[in-house]
Nucleic acid binder design. Structure first.
Length: 430
DNA sequence: TCTGGGGTCCTAGGACCC
DNA sequence: TCTGGGGTCCTAGGACCC
């Protein structure tokens, strides 16, 4: 068996980099990108990080400082980021032996079994240059024998300018010094809670953690923590997933820019979420068995009356049909809606998903009978036409009557860039 | 005034069964 | 004064990720 070697390619400050590709004035200056409703800061350029602006911070708390420091602020433009992501991944997939797309801005690549003539660092350099040339996005690449170590190598590549964006972490001495310089909370798989617990036990760095005993880690952090421990020792426990598995849940939820009190208004918004969720489900060729509808008040306003509730309903027959999902959403909301509260967030979650062609037939519909088949066929064709129109002209171009009243509740999005790559009208001109 | 959205996996404990 | 033992399935909640 050959030694495992894994590379992770991570786009630098991805959302900011996407904005910069089409608006070069944003280069060499501090830039942040905001979440939906311009609520939180979810991406920062290096210059913005240097100013001390933290990831995930509420925008309103930093607005003053951001304005005073001349930081450029962009609302998020997911149509642009999603499209840029697939371009980056296409370049990687064309060159690398095998790829696992891990998130919108990261991919793991299989560098095991490279031919002797091909040095992994040379291959990584080539990938970096090719992605930069063909998409304009800068990436960093870390390599090691496990995913967790590759992640640490990636941080090294980003932090250490002498690495020029590529770090291959294989030398035991370099691994030891790098782990000693890595804070325990910067390990992939160690979040805030576990970091706090570990630090309380005087385990401060990745090197400290690596020398903990298996039994102690197993007891405190379960098998997940144990896996991370072994990965840090260079034993791969998290394998590459070359085929992306089917989703197990599909969720559409939003916070509202202003609170919603009325049942009818909540129905409007949830109906929109429901039809988006239905379209997402059809797009992946799945059908849902259960639906959960949830609502909640603003959890940050502790002096206001709080209410949060959810209900799960079972579909009589698995479905991805907008009409079924809308009906269930309205039924679910009727169960959990209580008047007198200021609702801040709501959503629809579809679970028990299955490939449509694997769906068990209901006992009651005589699924095989010619009449039922014709009805099903008609319903499916309706949804195909529906998706075709919305795919071409944008979500909501066509909608069920109950899903679309007046959409006068737009998201707050004051600084959004054009959809340069996915809308003809927004194509940049040169 | 203003605090995102979408996922995964694991575990403990209860219900139920023999 | 006493009240088995073991297995499976399901779910809620907790941890994590980007």
């Amino acid at each position: 068996m050959t030694q495992s070697h894994i590379a992770i390619v991570d786009c630098n400050n991805f959302y900011v980099s996407c904005e910069r590709v089409f608006n070069p004035q944003l280069c060499n200056m501090p830039v942040v990108v905001l979440s939906n409703n311009d609520g939180c800061i979810i991406a920062r350029s290096n210059e913005a990080k240097a100013l001390g602006i933290p990831m995930g911070a509420p925008y309103f708390k930093w607005k003053r400082m951001i304005e005073d420091s001349g930081v450029a602020v962009m609302s998020s433009n997911y149509a642009l980021y999603g499209d840029m992501s697939s371009r980056v991944m296409q370049v990687l997939a064309a060159i690398a032996p095998a790829i696992e797309i891990y998130s919108i801005d990261e991919s793991f690549l299989d560098f095991s079994n490279l031919p002797d003539t091909l040095n992994p660092v040379d291959l990584a350099d080539r990938l970096r240059q090719q992605v930069a040339q063909w998409t304009g996005i800068p990436v960093s690449i870390g390599m090691a024998s496990s995913k967790t170590l590759a992640k640490i190598a990636n941080r090294l590549a980003k932090k250490n300018p002498s690495k020029h964006g590529v770090a291959n972490l294989t030398d035991p001495t370099e691994i030891a010094t790098t782990l000693a310089a890595t804070d325990v909370e910067d390990i992939w798989g160690i979040g805030r809670r576990w970091a706090r617990m570990l630090k309380a036990c005087n385990i401060m760095t990745a090197a400290d953690f690596r020398s903990c005993s298996d039994s102690w880690v197993r007891q405190k952090m379960g098998v997940v923590g144990l896996r991370t421990l072994h990965e840090l020792r260079g034993i791969p426990c998290v394998s590459l997933e070359l085929e992306s598995p089917d989703k197990k849940s599909i969720c559409v939820s939003r916070s509202f820019s202003t609170p919603v009190m009325e049942h009818a208004a909540l129905t409007d918004r949830l109906s929109d979420f429901a039809s988006r969720a239905a379209a997402k489900t059809r797009k992946t060729g799945l059908v849902a068995g259960y639906i959960t509808v949830f609502v909640r008040t603003n959890r940050f306003q502790k002096d206001r009356p709080q209410y949060s509730n959810a209900v799960t309903l079972t579909f009589p027959e698995m479905t991805a049909h907008t009409a079924d999902i809308l009906a269930a959403t309205r039924q679910g909301l009727a169960h959990i809606y209580r008047p007198g509260y200021e609702y801040k967030k709501a959503g629809v979650l579809l679970t028990n998903l299955m490939r449509q062609d694997m769906t068990p037939q209901s006992l009651w519909t005589h699924a095989g009978s010619p009449k039922t088949l014709i009805v099903k066929e008609k319903r499916n064709k309706l949804m195909q036409a529906f998706d075709g129109i919305n795919g071409r002209f944008g979500h909501g171009s066509i909608a069920y009557g109950i899903a679309k009243r007046k959409n006068n509740w737009f998201m707050r999005q004051e600084k959004v860039s054009p959809r340069y790559t996915t809308r003809w009208e927004d194509l940049p001109t040169v």
